[in-house]
Design a binder for these strands. Structure first.
Lengths: 176, 176
DNA sequence: CCCTTTTCACCTAGGTGGTAAGAT
DNA sequence: ATCTTACCACCTAGGTGAAAAGGG
């Protein structure tokens, strides 16, 4: 499934005439598993993290493009897909439920991206830079723990419009 | 709007490790305008062609890719879009209605595709080859002239499924 | 007990030909 | 008279949270 809200970034300082790949991966914040304590509305440590999963990378679909192209637009990662299926073969990013994660944005000069692949770790070294934003750390769930999150999603995600204005007309049907 | 059925090609003889763009353009077959004569079920010349339109090229969305990748798959042009609006700014291919056209497939070695653009003619010369298939010539219309074409489209295009099995249940509605 | 999966109605987004109205 | 456009019901394709069912 997709992330919502999606990560969106603006980039400056690229060489306008150089080609780049932009990619995202998602790394564990710590070595812990969490549970949500309802009465205190807090995430609490609930043991050690599950075993690591295969590394996956989301390569932004506009890649490769020139620095000029990347800098002209807001770069959105709304098509990135997550799964908790460790055997996934769709190229989705694999995460454990009930763990804390940090998304990272990678800017990769085209000549350094030869072994860039959705199923290999992001290359490191010359011509590759990584950026992460602490305010984007999140905790994975399979069911919402927090009504404020549910409200945010229903109010802001266009695909959830069916749950706004909820009471009326929702269960009427027509048998022809 | 899209073409249906779409052009689909298989390519062989590429260098597996060379990168290529694949593109399509659509060129006039002759300098004539046509009309359909119903009683004889034939297209007849009905004057000279309208004035030329801005050149457009559909660059296959998998471009660029290696010869190996291109040769492994059937290459479909089903996302290509046509319009009769000469002022189109969506990058669609512009055609006159009631004219005869021939689609062409272009194979462009990556290093020869530097000035490849949806709004410029396909480059020619070394590293660029064009292919056309006479059986794919077609005549443009804004309304179908021929019931066999209508039937083919309804029977084969998944989006037209609503017109199959036509009589039953089509006009029932439910007023809540 | 708590977490996960499945199924559902309800959306977004957009591709069909029919039909009636519009244009030349 | 003939071609074109705008609108419509009906599809495909797939993204929502709720609720029920499943699982350790």
């Amino acid at each position: 499934m997709r992330m919502f809200p999606a990560m969106r970034v603006k980039i400056s300082g690229l060489d306008p005439h150089q080609q780049y790949y932009i990619a995202m991966d998602i790394v564990p914040v710590d070595n812990k598993r969490y549970r949500y304590v309802y009465h205190s509305s807090k995430w609490m440590v609930a043991g050690n993290a599950d075993s690591p999963v295969p590394p996956r990378v989301y390569i932004h679909p506009d890649s490769p493009a020139s620095g000029e192209t990347w800098m002209r637009q807001v770069i959105s990662f709304d098509k990135l897909k997550l799964t908790n299926n460790e055997l996934d073969d769709q190229g989705h990013i694999i995460l454990h439920s009930m763990h804390k994660y940090q998304p990272r944005v990678h800017v990769i000069r085209k000549d350094c991206g030869d072994d860039l692949s959705p199923i290999k770790p992001v290359p490191t070294g010359e011509g590759v830079k990584a950026f992460s934003f602490p305010e984007t750390v999140f905790t994975t769930v399979t069911a919402y723990q927090n009504q404020q999150i549910t409200r945010l999603k229903i109010d802001r995600n266009p695909f959830a419009k069916g749950f706004r204005d909820s009471g009326r007309n929702r269960h009427q049907q027509c048998q022809l």
